Simulated scan of single mutants.
Amino acid sequence: MKTKAVLSQTEVSQILGAARTEARNNQWAVSIAIVDDGGHPLALERLDGCAPISAYIAMEKARTSALGRRESKGYEDMVNGGRHAFLSAPLLTSLEGGVPIIVDGQVIGAVGVSGVKAEHDAQVASAGAQCLK
């Protein structure tokens, strides 16, 4: 039987704090979502000034990354590369900004960010996802 790490509220708080710090250091108003490996919500924070829809988009980016076991940008690249069928895939958001949280080679959750340019969303998400290393 295999074993793997799981996110506790301690790690979720650390991840949220690292992502929030990255966003604030760059003066980016974003929403930050954290999910477990099944895409279930663990945390959501919408920073002051961020559009309400970003909270929904951030959660979907995180869910996509957790369930797909990869950055959500990979799906965006597929669609932009001509594989338009991915637009109809269930439980999938083809937008950059979802980053998996990987511990000991296993995806244990993901961070999704929305509110600014796609590459900046991904930068904030990466800051959160990588803070446990």
Rank of each mutant, 00 (worst) to 15 (best):
residue 1 M to G: 14
residue 1 M to K: 04
residue 5 A to Q: 06
residue 6 V to A: 10
residue 6 V to L: 11
residue 8 S to Y: 00
residue 8 S to D: 10
residue 9 Q to G: 10
residue 9 Q to V: 10
residue 10 T to W: 00
residue 10 T to S: 06
residue 11 E to Y: 09
residue 13 S to K: 13
residue 14 Q to E: 00
residue 14 Q to N: 01
residue 14 Q to W: 02
residue 14 Q to V: 01
residue 16 L to C: 03
residue 16 L to A: 05
residue 16 L to M: 14
residue 16 L to V: 15
residue 16 L to T: 04
residue 18 A to Y: 03
residue 18 A to F: 02
residue 19 A to N: 04
residue 21 T to N: 11
residue 21 T to I: 08
residue 24 R to Q: 15
residue 27 Q to L: 03
residue 28 W to S: 12
residue 29 A to R: 12
residue 30 V to M: 12
residue 31 S to P: 08
residue 31 S to I: 12
residue 31 S to K: 11
residue 32 I to H: 06
residue 33 A to R: 05
residue 33 A to C: 09
residue 34 I to E: 03
residue 36 D to E: 08
residue 36 D to H: 04
residue 40 H to M: 07
residue 41 P to E: 11
residue 44 L to W: 08
residue 44 L to G: 15
residue 44 L to A: 14
residue 44 L to F: 10
residue 45 E to K: 12
residue 45 E to C: 11
residue 50 C to R: 08
residue 51 A to I: 13
residue 52 P to H: 04
residue 53 I to D: 08
residue 53 I to Q: 06
residue 55 A to Y: 00
residue 55 A to R: 03
residue 55 A to P: 11
residue 55 A to S: 15
residue 56 Y to W: 05
residue 58 A to Q: 07
residue 58 A to H: 04
residue 61 K to R: 09
residue 61 K to T: 07
residue 62 A to E: 03
residue 64 T to C: 10
residue 64 T to Y: 00
residue 64 T to E: 06
residue 64 T to M: 05
residue 65 S to P: 06
residue 65 S to Q: 07
residue 66 A to F: 05
residue 66 A to S: 13
residue 66 A to C: 11
residue 69 R to G: 14
residue 69 R to T: 09
residue 70 R to V: 15
residue 71 E to P: 12
residue 72 S to W: 04
residue 73 K to A: 15
residue 74 G to Y: 00
residue 74 G to H: 07
residue 74 G to P: 01
residue 75 Y to L: 05
residue 76 E to P: 01
residue 76 E to I: 02
residue 76 E to R: 14
residue 77 D to I: 03
residue 77 D to N: 08
residue 78 M to G: 02
residue 81 G to L: 01
residue 81 G to D: 05
residue 82 G to W: 05
residue 83 R to G: 01
residue 86 F to E: 10
residue 90 P to L: 04
residue 91 L to T: 03
residue 91 L to I: 04
residue 92 L to C: 15
residue 92 L to V: 13
residue 93 T to D: 03
residue 93 T to A: 09
residue 94 S to K: 02
residue 95 L to W: 01
residue 97 G to M: 12
residue 100 P to F: 00
residue 101 I to C: 08
residue 102 I to T: 11
residue 105 G to Y: 02
residue 105 G to M: 07
residue 106 Q to K: 12
residue 106 Q to W: 00
residue 108 I to E: 07
residue 109 G to P: 08
residue 113 V to E: 12
residue 114 S to I: 12
residue 114 S to M: 11
residue 115 G to Q: 06
residue 116 V to Y: 07
residue 116 V to A: 14
residue 121 D to N: 14
residue 121 D to I: 15
residue 123 Q to G: 01
residue 124 V to P: 07
residue 125 A to V: 09
residue 126 S to W: 07
residue 126 S to Q: 12
residue 128 G to T: 06
residue 132 L to Y: 00
